Amino acid sequence: MALRRIILAGLGLSVFAAAAVLAAGELLSAAAPHAIGEAPRDLAARTVQLRVNADATVAGWYAPGQAGHGAVLLLHGVRADRRAMLDRARFLKRAGFAVLLIDLPSHGESSGERITFGWREAEGVKAALAFLRQELPGEKVGVIGVSLGAASLVLARDLKAPDAAVLESMYPAIEDAVGDRLALYLGQPARHLSPLLLWQLPLRTGIGLEQLRPEAVLPALKTPVLIASGSADTRTPWHETLRLYAAAGQPKQLWMVQGADHVDLHAYAPSAYEAMVLAFLRRHLHGDATPRQAAR
């Protein structure tokens, strides 16, 4: 009887663990729609609906800037929306840049049924860049992408590259992203559970693991990049950021935000963030002669 109880308990635990893994897989890729509405008055932005294809649109806010200053596309992190980038939009607009904040596909008010960790979100990025180039012919265009937003830019296929890109807290490969989060929440041995989550990805999204490796395609992004991450980031550890920096082409900069975890780097260190990012964008988007700051 004791053996039978042990066997039954083991089976019950196995069923529970399998159900938990399946539920986690569903949660990770489920869409994150949010009602948002009009832009805050101080941004002086208009709402835009950008056509991605016959079945998909991307929602956003566009605020014009000063002629010759360039434009910046702002891309939020996973399960967020354009509102997460509002404070960045405000300081960029004060500096004269035009700004476009979008909801990535399957987020906010944009269409989409599954989060795909940058793969299909990249189509929304391409539509947004095309909008800015049509709206502002002759202006240079930069991108600031946070986590998923950064990956969505890097994973874009057949992309006419922007003139500068700030990549914040970006995962190098989906295997790293899943393993890091399992270790964070369940301890290092939980990394061995990664395959149980990763095998669901193609089934739920139709996307293979090999398609979700920003590190592998980053060299093809032919634009100046500023790669930033927190020194205490537990979801994208610093050694992974160093891998991304090594993979990126020149010109490139690296910025370690001391003490920051996987958080909003602008909110964590606003003065340092604005100084670093403005210097980078001015240098590449309108030829500002601001001296290069220390990369780390």
Rank of each mutant, 00 (worst) to 15 (best):
M276Y: 11
L198W: 11
I102T: 13
P172G: 10
S271T: 14
I115E: 10
T236M: 06
A89R: 04
R181V: 02
G149Y: 10
A35T: 10
D42K: 05
L92R: 09
V15G: 06
E109R: 08
R213P: 08
A173L: 03
L28Q: 08
F117G: 00
L221H: 05
V277Y: 10
Q211R: 14
G259L: 01
A84D: 10
Y62C: 01
W61S: 05
R114W: 06
A23D: 10
E26I: 13
P64M: 01
F16Y: 11
P172T: 07
L3W: 15
W119S: 15
G208L: 12
R51P: 08
E38W: 00
H262P: 03
E210S: 09
L153P: 05
Q293N: 04
E168D: 09
V21S: 11
K160G: 00
H239T: 05
A190E: 05
R204S: 07
R41P: 05
Q134F: 00
Y268F: 15
E113F: 07
G68N: 03
V99D: 02
V72L: 01
F117M: 05
L104R: 08
L265I: 01
E109K: 07
L153Q: 04
D288L: 05
R51N: 09
A275I: 01
D261M: 02
V154K: 07
A295G: 14
W238Q: 09
W255D: 15
A84T: 04
L226T: 08
L226C: 09
G108K: 05
L265R: 06
L218Q: 15
R5V: 12
L203Y: 11
H192F: 14
G230R: 08
P224K: 14
G249F: 12
L159N: 09
A45N: 08
E26G: 14
I7W: 13
I227H: 04
I207K: 07
G68W: 00
